[in-house]
Amino acid sequence: MPTPTLLVTGSSGLIGSEVCVHFAERGWQVHGVDNNQRAVFFGPQGDTRWNQKRLQEQLGDRFQHTELDIRDRPGVLALLDELRPEAIPFDDFDTNATGTLNLLEATR
């Protein structure tokens, strides 16, 4: 049986990196996508490359990284066409998008 593949967006961030570790330790092949956008937003103190490197060292061949801005629709389509992951977690999306929507609704 082939090893299942998980695609994790924001893989160098707080939630994404822990999702990577969790699933890699359970036998999944984890493919992380991150473009270090935090460094753009917050400057050098927001840089997450250290976490990307930690994942690569800790998880070895169970982790692969793709430098990609997920707003790049053709890039995302090409990556998914290539990888065909069995799963993509919604944890980070729920935290960010749903949390933002809750704040907007509360403000309205």
Rank of each mutant, 00 (worst) to 15 (best):
N35M: 12
V19E: 02
E105M: 03
R54A: 13
G60R: 00
S17V: 01
T5C: 12
I88P: 06
S11G: 13
T100Y: 12
R73V: 09
F63M: 00
Q56D: 00
T100I: 11
V40I: 09
D34K: 08
F93H: 07
P2R: 13
G27A: 06
L104N: 08
L103N: 13
G75Q: 01
A39Q: 14
L80H: 05
N102G: 11
G60D: 13
L101I: 15
S12V: 14
P85F: 05
R73I: 06
I15P: 03
V33C: 06
H65V: 11
G43F: 01
S12R: 14
T66A: 09
L59F: 12
K53Q: 14
D94R: 05
V21S: 03
P2K: 13
A24D: 02
L6M: 07
V40T: 08
N36F: 00
H22S: 11
K53T: 13
Q29P: 00
H22W: 12
L6S: 01
T66M: 06
T5N: 11
D34Q: 08
D61C: 07
V19C: 05
T9G: 10
E105F: 04
P2T: 12
D81K: 11
F90S: 11
R38D: 02
R26P: 04
V33R: 02
D81Q: 09
P89F: 13
F23G: 02
H22N: 10
Q37F: 08
E82P: 07
P4G: 06
L77R: 09
N51R: 15
G27W: 01
L77C: 06
G16M: 07
P44W: 06
T66W: 07
Q45T: 06
K53M: 11
G10C: 07
S17Y: 05
E67W: 15
Q52K: 15
A106M: 00
G10Y: 03
T3I: 14
W28Q: 02
R54M: 13
H22A: 14
E57I: 07
H31V: 14
L79H: 03
D47V: 11
E82G: 11
I88V: 15
A39P: 05
A24M: 02
L79W: 02
N36Q: 00
G46S: 08
E86Y: 06
L104M: 10
L77Y: 02
